[in-house]
C-alpha cells in the first residue's frame, strides 16, 4: 500500500530547482505532489509523480543524486480536525512521523497527506485498523 516517492538532492544554486523540474517536464512526467526541505546549503526535493521509475531515470541521466523511498498516502477528510485525528491515531500507536506534506484533491471532499514513516507497514496497519483510508499507489499516480 505504499507509494513511491522520488527524492532529489538540490544544491542551493540559482536555477537548480528549475532545471530539475524542467527535466521532468521534458520527459512528459507529471508531478502529483511535492515538498522541498531546505537547509542553508542544500535542499531535498521530494516528488510524487505519475511514473516514478522513469522520473528516477531522468534525474539520474541529468546528473542529479536521486533516490526512491516508500511513503504512505492517506486520505484525510478536508475539514477542521481532519489531520489532527490522523496524527492522534499515530501518536497512540507510537509511530514516529519523519515528515509529511499535503496535497488537495481536485474537486473532492478529501485532502491527501503524504507521510514518511520509519516503519510504513506498521503505520498502514494502525491507520487501517482505525478506519483511515490509505490510498493505493496506482490511485495516487493516476490522480
Amino acid at each position: 500500500m505504499t507509494v513511491q516517492q522520488i527524492s532529489v538532492f538540490i544544491e542551493n544554486r540559482r536555477g537548480r530547482l528549475a532545471e530539475a523540474t524542467q527535466a521532468l517536464g521534458m520527459a512528459g512526467i507529471n508531478i502529483r505532489a511535492l515538498s522541498l526541505a531546505e537547509t542553508s546549503d542544500f535542499g531535498i526535493l521530494r516528488l510524487i509523480v505519475d511514473r516514478p521509475d522513469q522520473a528516477k531515470q531522468v534525474f539520474a541521466e541529468q546528473g542529479f543524486t536521486v533516490d526512491k523511498t516508500d511513503v504512505v498516502a492517506v486520505q484525510v477528510p478536508d475539514r477542521p480536525m481532519g489531520l489532527a485525528h490522523i496524527l492522534q491515531i499515530l501518536d497512540e500507536a507510537r509511530i514516529a512521523v519523519e515528515y509529511l506534506y499535503a496535497f488537495i484533491e481536485r474537486c473532492g471532499e478529501n485532502a491527501i497527506i503524504i507521510f514518511r514513516f520509519d516503519d510504513s507497514r506498521q503505520a498502514i496497519a494502525s491507520l487501517q485498523d482505525r478506519g483511515v483510508k490509505v490510498l493505493a499507489a496506482e490511485a495516487v499516480y493516476g490522480m
Binding site: F9, A37, I44, R46, V66, D67, T69
Partner: peptide, 11 residues
C-alpha cells in the same frame, strides 16, 4: 559530493 550511497530523503 553527495552520491547515492550517502543521500537520504531526510534532512
Amino acid at each position: 559530493e553527495v552520491t547515492e550511497d550517502i543521500f537520504s530523503d531526510e534532512v
